[in-house]
Design a protein around this nucleic acid. Structure first.
Length: 521
RNA sequence: GCUCUGGUCGUCUAGCGGUUAGGACAUCGCCCUUUCACGGCGAAGAUCGCGGGUUCGAAUCCCGUCCGGAGUACCA
């Protein structure tokens, strides 16, 4: 009689899609969770369905009150917003499981399961359970509660224990000797022998439901059509599917997303860049670039597109493009995508993004936070970024022109700090090596005097001036003219075109810096 | 241990019985050029984890095997 439930499949039909992102508020939002949220969002929007947020806070001991805020803020930064959730309400309120428990949603349903014989009370103590597991391990048997002394306890035993006031949990009664087949949208059919599944706790002694119970009950109550979650859940998916069957509820479609691992194939960690999504913001990544990048780990549009807009991502999203194998996080590709994103912006968009970036309090605290050794990883970054905010408040046209000259040369917003420095500081730091190589050449003083004697303010002026000087003085190539001048003006050997940069700097700065270089000789 | 699950260039991937196994990032070279980038062009890079089988033909189907990963909690 049980087999019937295990193989029955309930068509989703044309119910409209409802999907959810259901994190446990225990810590920070990391990139793996972001990817899940992103796929859920892309799927919902592609299908024209509804997307909701549910907070799975059934573990009081691990609850972190700052966490929910972190999730919402971070998701908001990347542009993932919810149709329903604890912060916006909705037809299935409340959206926090602790509140749902208080509202008495779970208890009657648990009782319903007990009455139907699909769940039973178990009075084992923590010590008894530990001992049981130890014995199982010694005997090399699977660990878990495969019946214990309470699965088949007589009503008298149960009554006696209850009368004694012993605390108890409610466990799911997994039928024996059947196959449970779970249909996973990515992996296809997954078969489990019910005998390998233990009787999980559904309701804890304090009356709080476990994930197994609360999540499935809520998914049914909230009319979830597709359960998208991390692949760490596939092992327990037969219990979840079974629970739907035991309630007589239609099973939603299960979609287990593969994990994202670091470049070494191990769990993603600080060494690979960052695990906290907000840290990518602090490092100057554009939310869309991060999204675009993360979407491409474990999913492909089916054609060769790499850089896609939000609308393209939504239009192209398809469950069939999902990959079953774990994906590695390749920071280089993220950097490329980010540079690409920066180059696609207009100057005004770029300026807006940059200003929002440098004025964000988290960016400041990120770059000033000591690492585990107590050091600031790169103490030069923040002072430079801070200077950008000040400079933009001054001559905005000058700032935008400088921004335009560096736009093609950076990969992150943070890179602008260093790239723009010589435009904003009257006496930029000099690269020692470059000074030694270029400013010591004998023709340099005369060259600089010539430039000072012929001030101008256009690219064309300096282009013509320096070319003519080179020809008149027998230089076959422009290098000996251009390089020393660049070093004197910027302190560096690389950067935007020299003539553009001179025109923007203007004759006063050009003269001051050339004189400084002459004096240093 | 047991149960699931994954395995195509360094990386992300296309591929669905017949392809010189395609693209992108990274790498290298050339072009552009005053440098660095950007952009363009090109090269190198995968006997499709390994071994059998089915087939005229296999990365694609079947079996086995190896190596990863996850789960095995009154955590999610």
């Amino acid at each position: 009689m049980w087999g019937r439930h295990s193989i029955r499949r309930y068509p989703i039909g044309n119910m409209s899609v409802r999907v959810r992102f259901a994190p446990s508020p225990t810590g920070l939002l990391h990139v793996g969770a972001l990817r899940t949220a992103l796929f859920v969002q892309l799927f919902a929007r592609n299908q024209g369905g509804k997307l909701f947020l549910r907070i799975e806070d059934t573990d009081r001991s691990r609850y972190n009150p700052a966490s929910e805020q972190e999730f919402i803020e971070t998701l908001n930064w990347v542009g993932i917003t919810f149709d329903e959730g604890p912060h916006v309400g909705g037809p299935h309120s409340p959206y926090r499981q602790s509140e749902r428990k208080e509202a008495g949603i779970y208890a009657p349903l648990a009782q319903q399961l007990v009455d139907a014989g699909h769940a039973y009370p178990a009075f084992d103590t923590a010590d008894e359970l530990t001992e049981m597991r130890e014995i199982q391990q010694i005997n090399k048997q699977p660990t878990g509660y495969f019946g214990g002394k309470w699965r088949d306890a007589t009503p008298d035993m149960v009554e006696a224990a209850k009368a004694e006031g012993k605390p108890y949990v409610l466990r799911q009664r997994v039928p024996r000797g059947i196959k449970i087949t779970v249909e996973d949208a990515i992996r296809g059919r997954i078969e489990f022998e019910s005998d390998t599944l233990d009787d999980s706790v559904l309701i804890k002694t304090d009356g709080m439901p476990t994930y197994h119970f609360a999540s499935m009950v809520d998914d049914h109550l909230m009319e979830t059509t597709h359960i998208m979650r991390g692949e760490e859940w596939v092992s327990s998916s037969p219990k979840h599917a079974l629970l739907f069957d035991q309630f007589g509820w239609p099973r939603p479609t299960f979609i287990h997303l593969p994990v994202i691992v670091g470049s070494d194939g191990k769990k993603l960690s600080k060494r690979h860049g960052a695990t906290r999504v907000l840290d990518y913001m602090a490092q100057g990544y554009h939310p869309h670039a991060l999204k675009n990048f993360v979407a491409l780990i474990g999913w492909a549009p089916g054609d060769d597109r790499e850089s896609m807009t939000e609308a393209e991502l939504i239009a192209a999203f398809d469950l069939r493009g999902l990959q079953p194998s774990p994906g590695k996080f390749d920071l280089e590709k993220l950097r490329w995508l980010n540079g690409h994103q920066i180059r696609q912006m207009t100057i005004d968009e770029l300026l807006e993004n940059l200003l929002r970036y440098v004025n964000d309090p988290y960016v400041k605290s990120y770059w000033n936070a000591p690492d585990s050794d107590g050091d600031i990883p790169n103490p030069e970054v923040w002072p430079r970024l801070e200077r950008l905010a000040g400079a933009a408040a001054g001559d905005i046209e000058y700032f935008k022109a400088a921004l335009a000259l560096e736009q093609e040369r950076v990969q992150t917003l943070a890179d602008f700090g260093e790239a723009l420095e010589f435009f904003l500081v009257e006496q930029p730091a000099m690269d020692e090596k470059a000074v030694k190589k270029w400013l010591t050449q004998p023709h340099v003083p005369a060259l600089f005097e010539h430039i000072i004697a012929n001030p101008g303010s256009t690219t064309e002026h300096y282009d013509a001036l320096l070319r003519a000087y080179g020809e008149a003085n027998g230089f076959e190539k422009l290098g000996p003219i251009v390089h020393p001048t660049r070093v004197a003006l910027t302190g560096k050997t690389f950067g935007p075109g020299l003539f553009e940069l001179m025109a923007l700097l203007g004759p006063a700065r050009v003269e001051a810096r050339l004189r400084r270089a002459l004096a240093a000789d």
